[in-house]
Design a protein around this nucleic acid. Structure first.
Lengths: 337, 337
DNA sequence: TTGTAAGCGTTATCAA
DNA sequence: TTGATAACGCTTACAA
C-alpha cells in the first residue's frame, strides 16, 4: 500500500535527500561538504542551506566504508581510572578531536592476553590508527596490526624496536636516576612500595641496578594492587616499618607516596628527617603536599598530544621527523626526599 | 589484465573470501558468525576454520551500515581526567564491553555549547546509544537526539523530566544533607571551597538553603577551577582563613577537602577540633586520609554500570523496569567533620 | 539449513 | 564545475 504523498519520512535524511532539496546531485553535495574548494561558492551555499533545512547528519559508517578511512582512532589503556593515564587521555582526546578524529577507548587491563582480544574487536571498526600503552604485546596482536597495516603508536615506554611509532621514556633510566639521587642524598636503607604493573617493574629493575652498583641489595618491597591507591601507600609503609628499618620509602607512584607519607606522619615520624619518601609521576598534588613530594616528573599530557599528532600526520601522509619520541623525565627534588 | 591466480590479495579478507575458502555462500558465513544457532554445527566449524585460515576480521562499518546497528555507544563527560568520573567511565566501559558494545569517548568541557557540537559529530557514527553527563543540555542537542530517536541516558544528576533514561542522584538533597549534618554537629560558621561546575552549583544551592533555614546566611565561598586539584583546596582554605573565621570548611570535592585539610595542618590547626572539613565524592583516599574525610559517598561505578545496562537493554528491546534510577548518596561520617 | 538478490549511504572514478 | 555509475562489505528479506 502506497503511503500518502506527504508522508513523514521516518529514516534519517541522506545525501540524496539533501541533493533533492538543493536540486543537485548527491555527489556534488558530498563534495560541497568534504572538499568545498572543488565546488562553486554559490553551490556550496545552496548545499549548506539544504543541509540545515533537512537536518542532515552524515553517515560516517557509509562514508568510512566507501572511503576506507574511518576517522577513528582506537586507544587502549590498562585502566581508564588510573590517574597516571588520565591526563594523557584527556590531551590525546583533545588533539585527536582537533584533527578530526574520534577516540574509541578501551581499558585492556594489564595483561597482553586481554589486549589482543580487544585489539581484534577494535580492528573491526577499521580504525585509521591505534594507540597502545606499553611496549610488551602478544605476538598475535602484532600480527593483526601488521596484516591490517594500520599505523600504531606505543606509549608510556621506550624501545629501539617499536611496532611502528612511539612516544615514551625509559623506565629503567628513571629507576636508575632515582637510585643515584637517593644515594647521593645519603640514604642507604631503602624500602619499596610498588605496583605489579609492567613498566613499574622496569623502573624497579633500574632502581635495583643502581642500588646494587653501590652495594645495596636485599631491598624489601611491598607490592600492591592496581590502580595504586592512597590506602595502599599507607598499608605498604606500615608493613615496611614493621619488618625493616628503612631510611627512605621509594614508591611506585605519587599516590602511594602520599599514602606512605600520611602513614609515617600518623606514627609521629618526620618526613624526610626520620624517613624520606620518593614518588613517581608528579601528579597534581605532589607539589602542594605537606611535605611536597620528591618525584619523577613526566609531561603526561605531552605523551597524549604527541601520540595523537604522530598518528594524524602519518594517516594524512605527512610523517616527517622522528617516529620515536623520548619525552624524557625529570627528577624533581622537593621536600620529601 | 587478469592477475596471476596465486596473486597476493593485499586488501583485508572479506566475508566473500571466507565463503570461498569454506565453499559456502557469504550469507551462511555471516550467519555462522552472528547467529550460529541457525547454522548446522558442522558448517559452523568449517566457517571458523576458514576464518582462521584467512585471518578474517569483520568490517563493522559495513555491518553497521547494513544492519543499522553500530554497536557503538557515544559517551560524553566534562573531563576524562576528573577523578569523580573516572570510576564511572571504567565501570561503564566494562559493562558495555561485556554486552558487546564499544565506547566512543569525548570530553565535552563544561559548556552546553561545545556539547551540542560534539553530539552532532558523534551522531554521524550512528551510535546505538548515548550517555550524557548532567541534565542541562542545549535545546539543539535535544532536537538532534530526538530526531535520531536514539536512546539516551543522562547521568550524575536527577530530574523528573529526563530526555529519556537517567541514572543519578539529587545534588540539592546532597547539599541539604550536608547542611543538616554540619548544623547538627554544632558548626555555625561555614566557609566554602567550591568549583564552578553545574552540579556543584546545585549542591551549593541545597547547602545554602539548608543553612538559611537555620538563619545562616552570607556564607563565604572561594571558587576554583576544574577539575579541582589538591592545590586548589589548599589555596581555597588559605584564602578563607584570611578573610573569615570559619569553624568548618565545606568542599566541593574530596580532592579539595584533602588540600584544605593539608593547609589547616600546615598552619598548626587541628582538624576537626579547630576547623572541620567536609568533602564530596568519597574518593579512594577519603577513608584513609589523616584525619579521614567526612564526605558524601556515591556509588560512582554503579552510575556507569547501570547506565550501560539501561542502554543495552533498551537497544536490545527489553527495557523492563524503571528508567529513572536514583542511586542516592550516603553522608559518611568520619573524622574530619 | 542454505542461497540469491537487493539494498544500506557514502565516495572513487570517469565522463560531460 | 557537475553528474552518472560502480563499488565498499555487510545484512535483510525472501526463495529454495
Amino acid at each position: 500500500m502506497a503511503r500518502p504523498s506527504r508522508a513523514v519520512i521516518s529514516r534519517a535524511p541522506t545525501l540524496d535527500d539533501v541533493a533533492r532539496a538543493a536540486g543537485l546531485s548527491s555527489m556534488t553535495v558530498s563534495r560541497a561538504l568534504n572538499t568545498p574548494d572543488q565546488v562553486r561558492p554559490e553551490t556550496v551555499k545552496r548545499v549548506l542551506a539544504a543541509v540545515k533545512a533537512t537536518g542532515y547528519i552524515p553517515n560516517a559508517l557509509a562514508g568510512g566504508l566507501a572511503s576506507r578511512r574511518s576517522k577513528l582512532v582506537a586507544v587502549l589503556v590498562p585502566h581508564i581510572n588510573d590517574p597516571l593515564f588520565a591526563d594523557t587521555l584527556q590531551a590525546m582526546g583533545e588533539t585527536l578531536s582537533q584533527r578530526g578524529y574520534q577516540m574509541l577507548l578501551c581499558s585492556a587491563g594489564y595483561t597482553p592476553q586481554t589486549e589482543t582480544e580487544l585489539v581484534s574487536t577494535l580492528m573491526s571498526r577499521r580504525p585509521d590508527g591505534i594507540v597502545l600503552t606499553g611496549i610488551h604485546h602478544a605476538n598475535d596482536l602484532k600480527k593483526i596490526i601488521f596484516n591490517a597495516s594500520v599505523p600504531v603508536v606505543e606509549t608510556w615506554d621506550i624501545t629501539p624496536t617499536p611496532i611502528d611509532m612511539l612516544v615514551g621514556f625509559s623506565h629503567e633510566k628513571a629507576g636508575q636516576a632515582t637510585a643515584e639521587y637517593l644515594l647521593g642524598k645519603g640514604y642507604r636503607r631503602p624500602g619499596l612500595v610498588w605496583t605489579t604493573e609492567r613498566t613499574a617493574a622496569q623502573r624497579k629493575n633500574g632502581l635495583y641496578e643502581g642500588l646494587a652498583r653501590h652495594g645495596i641489595t636485599d631491598v624489601p618491597c611491598v607490592e600492591s594492587q592496581l590502580p595504586a591507591r592512597f590506602a595502599d601507600g599507607r598499608a605498604g609503609a606500615a608493613q615496611l616499618l614493621e619488618t625493616t628499618e628503612s631510611d627512605v620509602i621509594i614508591c611506585g607512584s605519587d599516590t602511594l607516596a602520599q599514602g606512605a607519607i600520611s602513614e609515617l606522619q600518623a606514627r609521629g615520624l618526620r618526613v624526610p628527617q626520620d624517613v624520606a619518601v620518593m614518588g613517581f609521576g608528579d601528579l597534581d598534588f605532589a607539589a602542594a603536599n605537606v611535605p611536597s613530594i620528591t618525584t619523577i616528573a613526566l609531561d603526561r599530557r605531552a605523551i597524549g598530544a604527541r601520540a595523537a599528532t604522530l598518528l594524524a600526520n602519518r594517516i594524512e601522509g605527512r610523517s616527517d621527523g622522528e617516529q620515536i619520541i623520548d619525552i624524557g623525565f625529570h627528577l624533581t627534588e622537593r621536600e620529601s626526599a
